[in-house]
Design a protein around this nucleic acid. Structure first.
Ligand SMILES: [Mn+2]
Ligand SMILES: [Mn+2]
Ligand SMILES: [Zn+2]
Ligand SMILES: [Zn+2]
Lengths: 136, 136
DNA sequence: GGATACTTTAAAATCATTCTAAATAGATTG
DNA sequence: CAATCTATTTAGAATGATTTTAAAGTATCC
């Protein structure tokens, strides 16, 4: 089963229409390694591969994939929305020089969430960001 | 010693010039309670108090206060930079409906930071954000 | 008070993102 | 397969937060 077949299955299961653009982006994103992409970074990659695609389409696609549960949204970094193909609960190192994110496995973080919110609230998600920089 | 005197001392110690605008904003921010403000929210508050001040001045002021160590920057929320008068290491609840931040004391969170970064990196800061929403 | 450097300001510019509206293409049905 | 319906793509305009520009104003120091 080719990568393209995998993507097509994934999009079908998610109830998304199969368009050339979605299949192409799906193939780029849902390979073996987890990825962190912004619309702009993904659009650059697409153009380097010789494909022409409107930036708005990349935004549309990322948002559709997110709504369908195929991508997670990460805390914005430098005013830029980052989408994460790693759907498991996990945290991030953030290289403050480059903006690059690296996954931290959940097992390496323990949180004693003691202070309960005002009555009537529930936790939607949690994310720890460890900002790192080259040693001085 | 009035609030205004406190602010003036604080600005002097920080090596910042004493301008009407900085003193006014300092008085608003460095009271008894810790605050989380954006440039826009602070500017609104200033206008409601009947003062006229350019939004760019509020931005300038917040950035100067931050560079001088009088304010912390919080992970952007909804594409908006938030400045925090609570300088201690701490974490936040984020009300996803309103964007409101609430402090979590450090003692309520424990982090086992096991995975060491690639050689030559050091931690600059860490921040845990717990997104919360009204119970369904 | 006068020289100097820094600050404030209105307005324009920037940048990520979203919206608009028209053209296109996927899905469905007969 | 064709007709139809609806979702998607696209270029370009619009938006909204923030930054920049450049000119006028102000703080600080002598
Ligand atoms: Mn953030
Ligand atoms: Mn923005
Ligand atoms: Zn990740
Ligand atoms: Zn805080």
């Amino acid at each position: 089963m080719s990568d393209k077949q995998n993507t097509i299955e994934m999009l079908k299961k998610a109830g998304l229409r199969l368009t050339k653009q979605r299949i192409f982006i799906g193939d780029l994103l849902f390979g073996s390694k987890h990825k962190h992409v912004s619309a702009e970074s993904l659009h650059n990659r697409i153009e380097k591969l010789g494909k022409k695609m409107a930036l708005a389409t990349v935004y549309n696609c990322l948002h559709h994939f997110h709504k369908a549960g195929l991508l997670k949204k990460v805390n914005a970094v430098n005013d830029v929305i980052i989408f994460d193909t790693n759907l498991c609960y996990h945290h991030h190192f953030l290289n403050v020089e480059t903006g690059e994110l690296t996954d931290i496995d959940e097992s390496n973080v323990s949180i004693a969430e003691l202070p309960s919110l005002p009555e009537g609230f529930e936790t939607e998600s949690m994310e720890l960001t460890i900002r790192v920089k080259p040693q001085t």
